[in-house]
Design a protein around this nucleic acid. Structure first.
Lengths: 110, 110
DNA sequence: CGCATCGGTAACTACACGCTAACGTACGGA
DNA sequence: TCCGTACGTTAGCGTGTAGTTACCGATGCG
C-alpha cells in the first residue's frame, strides 16, 4: 500500500493510470499525451508496475500497459475507514450536543 | 486533491491522520508516538493542514489537531471511479469470452 | 542482411523532501 | 516579573525523485 500511495502522489502517474484505465496502451502512445520525454514515462510506468497498479503485455517490440484496479484495494479500504469513522464521530457529537442542550435547559430552569 | 495525495504518500503522515481520526490531540502528544522530533511532526501537521486533511483548535499554548475526513473526498471519488470502471471492463470481458466460446463451439462443429 | 522502430536502462542534473538543531513567540503559574 | 511549557519557523544537511540525453538490445520489414 505504501508503494501505491507513493505512486499516486505524482500527477503524471495518476493521469497515466487514467489513460490505461479502460484500454491498454503502448508506451509511445502514452508518452505522446504528455509534455515529457518517453524515458520519463517509462520510469513512471516502472513505478506503477512495482506498485502493482498496472500490468504489461508484450507483443513484438511493443508493450501494452493496462491499469490494475485491484492494486488500489488496500488504499481504498484505508480511505473508507475514515468515512465510517467520520460517521461514528458525527453520531457521538450529535449525542453530546443533545446532552449539552439538556444542560442548557437545566440552566435556563435555574 | 493533489495536495491530499502528496500528503498521504508519507507513512508518518498517514499514521498521524489515523491518530487524530477519532479524537483531537496536541502536537507533543502526537510527537511522542513517533521516533522523530516534535518540529518534524509540526511540519507534517502543516502539510496535512495545507491539504485540508486536519483542523486545528487553539487552547492556551496548546493546539489540538483533528482529522477532517471531508478532505479526502476528491481522492476517494477518484479511486472509486476505478472500481466502477473495473466492473464495467469485467463485464465486457465476460461478454467477449462468451463470444469466443461460441466461436469455439462453431469450430468444433466443423 | 541492413535499417528503422519500440522500449528499457544508465549517467547526470536540478530540485523537492524529511529531519535536526537552534531560535523566537505566546501563554500560564509561582 | 521570571521561568517553564507548548508550538511554530528557519537554516542547513543528506537523500530521494523527476527530468534530460545518450545508449543499448530486440523485433519487424524491405
Amino acid at each position: 500500500m505504501d508503494a501505491a500511495a507513493r505512486a499516486l502522489a505524482e500527477p503524471t502517474r495518476r493521469e497515466i493510470l487514467r489513460l490505461v484505465r479502460d484500454e491498454e496502451r503502448t508506451v509511445t502512445d502514452i508518452a505522446q499525451q504528455f509534455p515529457v520525454s518517453r524515458p520519463a514515462i517509462s520510469q513512471h510506468l516502472r513505478v506503477l508496475a512495482d506498485a502493482e497498479l498496472v500490468t504489461v503485455r508484450s507483443e513484438g517490440t511493443r508493450r501494452f500497459y493496462r491499469a490494475r484496479p485491484e492494486g488500489l484495494a488496500e488504499l481504498t479500504e484505508w480511505l473508507e475507514s475514515f468515512w465510517t469513522s467520520s460517521l461514528r464521530r458525527l453520531a457521538i457529537e450529535v449525542e453530546r450536543e443533545q446532552w449539552n442542550n439538556r444542560k442548557h435547559e437545566k440552566v435556563d430552569d435555574d
